[in-house]
Simulated scan of single mutants.
Amino acid sequence: MSGGIIFYGDPHGEWRPLLRACREERPEAVVILGDCDLDRPLSQEVAPIAEAGIPVRWIHGNHDIDRPEWHDNLWGDRPGWNLHATAATFGGRVVVGLGGVFNKMVWDVRAQDAQLSFLTRRDMLKATPPSQRWRGGLPLRARDAIFLEDIEKLQQFHADILVTHEAPSSHRHGYSDIDEAAKACRAKLVVHGHHHENYEGVIPDTDVQVRGLARATVFRLR
Rank of each mutant, 00 (worst) to 15 (best):
V190F: 03
G34E: 06
I59K: 10
F7H: 06
R93M: 11
V101R: 09
D37L: 09
C22M: 09
Q155W: 01
V218A: 04
R26V: 03
S169V: 10
D39Y: 08
R143F: 06
G9Y: 05
G92T: 09
R211K: 14
Y175N: 14
G34Y: 03
L148F: 14
P68Y: 04
V109E: 13
N73S: 10
F157I: 07
G193Q: 12
V210D: 06
I151R: 07
R67H: 15
D72E: 15
R23T: 13
W75V: 01
R40G: 03
L19V: 00
V163Q: 00
V56R: 03
P17C: 02
G3Y: 02
N82V: 06
S43N: 03
C36K: 01
R122Q: 15
D39R: 12
S43W: 03
A87I: 12
T217L: 00
A216L: 10
A88K: 11
V109D: 13
L74Q: 02
Y199F: 15
Y175P: 10
S170M: 06
R20C: 03
D160Y: 09
C185S: 03
R172K: 11
P79C: 05
S117E: 05
S176E: 15
A187P: 11
H60P: 01
A145M: 07
R220A: 12
R222P: 14
A167R: 13
G99C: 07
A184Q: 09
A47D: 01
D150R: 11
V190Q: 06
R141V: 08
F147A: 02
L138D: 13
L140F: 13
D123Y: 06
G4D: 09
P17R: 02
P55L: 03
R121V: 06
R215H: 02
Q112C: 01
R78L: 14
D123N: 04
K104T: 15
S170Y: 07
L42E: 02
W134H: 14
R16A: 11
H158V: 04
V30W: 05
M124H: 06
F90W: 13
I146P: 14
L213G: 10
M105E: 13
P11L: 08
T206R: 08
A167T: 13
G9L: 02
V30Q: 07
P55N: 01
G91M: 08
V95E: 07
A181M: 08
G3E: 00
E51I: 08
A127E: 14
H63Q: 10
Y175R: 13
L33S: 12
I65V: 15
R135W: 04
W81P: 00
